[in-house]
């Protein structure tokens, strides 16, 4: 399959601040590609450069063979953008909004009419199309927001966090629409989110992005495979290299490593610096990447029992993208 989107070393700078630090990836025709990362990671900035909303500082990208620098006008016809905000005119009806967002792609007459009816059907709002956006529920607004990016039949759809603030029912409806657009109409999709469940459900491949950089990129299956059978965090009174080696040798364990001690949190305002606070690094924590988490837990616990080393804490994490993100960055995706 040829690539519909190839991004090479894309950068966006604001003064000294680098919002996007040289991102490269490609999306194949017919693929649903995920950009997963916490707030402020640079997802919206990346999409904005690829859709012509802002110019890149450096780097390049090609969309269906057209360069975004020299051939933006062609690129714009191929792209569809669903912005993160509800980008609609609240005092106009859904139909009036969609008509307008079709016209700015040069559509008119019967063609426009048919296209608007079609996208209303896709988001299941035909019945209420003449109501003002103001009078819609949050979920319905989100659906119109998506419809507005579809009127001109884009080949490559950028969905920027399309489910923020949406009830579960509308959310499922949005997922189904995206899947249908992809399967039935062959639309390629770039889907950004900070919800790993969404990305796991919808995307073939995922780029995990943090602080303007891609830190991992693969199929969802392979990414989760980094963790094998999941992760186990155990607290111990003391840890040495020999112990880590022994733990790594146990059945079901892939790797055992010491978690770097967390940075002490800044003192709250007005707090007495002399005051005896709870020691931040009470006990060292060992992270165990498991091949098979059940087997690993049993073996680790009986090994520590035999050694007479008491456990101070135990946490077992499922193998999912959330744990992968934690594994790669030491941070949680969402606070």
């Amino acid at each position: 399959m040829p690539a519909i989107l190839e991004v090479e070393n894309l950068t966006k700078k604001y003064g000294d601040f680098e919002a996007v630090k040289g991102i490269s990836f490609s999306v194949e025709e017919g693929e649903v590609f995920g950009l997963l990362g916490p707030n402020g990671a640079g997802k919206t900035q990346t999409i904005s450069m690829l859709t012509g909303v802002i110019p890149p500082t450096s780097g390049s990208a090609r969309i269906a063979g057209h360069d975004i620098k020299s051939d933006m006008n062609e690129v714009k016809k191929i792209n569809g953008l669903v912005p993160q905000d509800l980008a609609l005119y609240p005092t106009l009806s859904a139909r009036a909004n969609l008509n307008f967002f079709g016209r700015i792609y040069g559509l008119g007459g019967n063609e426009l009419k048919e296209r608007v009816e079609d996208v209303l059907r896709i988001v299941a709002l035909t019945d209420r199309a003449d109501q003002k956006i103001d009078e819609y529920s949050g979920g319905m607004k989100r659906r119109v927001n998506i419809a507005a990016g579809l009127v001109h039949q884009p080949q490559l759809l950028f969905l920027d966090e399309p489910t923020v603030g949406v009830d579960p029912q509308s959310r499922n409806h949005i997922f189904e629409s995206v899947q249908r657009l992809n399967r039935e109409r062959g639309m390629s999709v770039v889907y950004t989110s900070h919800y790993m469940e969404e990305v796991e459900l919808l995307c073939n491949r995922v780029a995990i992005i943090d602080e303007g950089k891609i830190i991992a990129m693969d199929t969802v299956k392979n990414l989760i495979g980094i963790l094998g059978g999941g992760m186990i965090y155990i607290g111990l009174e003391e840890v040495d290299d020999a112990l880590l080696e022994q733990l790594t040798g146990l059945g079901g364990v892939k790797e055992a490593m010491l978690v770097p001690p967390p940075v002490a949190p800044p003192l709250a305002e007005g707090e007495d610096p002399e005051k005896e606070t709870e020691p931040v690094t009470s006990n060292p924590i060992v992270k165990i990447v498991a091949e098979n988490s059940q087997q690993a837990v049993v073996n680790v616990i009986s090994f520590l029992n035999d050694q007479d080393r008491p456990l101070t804490s135990l946490e077992i994490l499922e193998p999912n993208l959330e744990s992968v993100f934690l594994h790669l960055t030491g941070k949680k995706l969402r606070e």
Binding site: T51, N73, L81, D85, L86, F101, I104, A148
Partner: peptide
């Protein structure tokens, strides 16, 4: 502020 301008910027007009 609402983001509709963003849509306009992404369109060929």
């Amino acid at each position: 502020e609402a983001g509709t301008l963003r849509r306009l910027l992404a369109a060929p007009l």
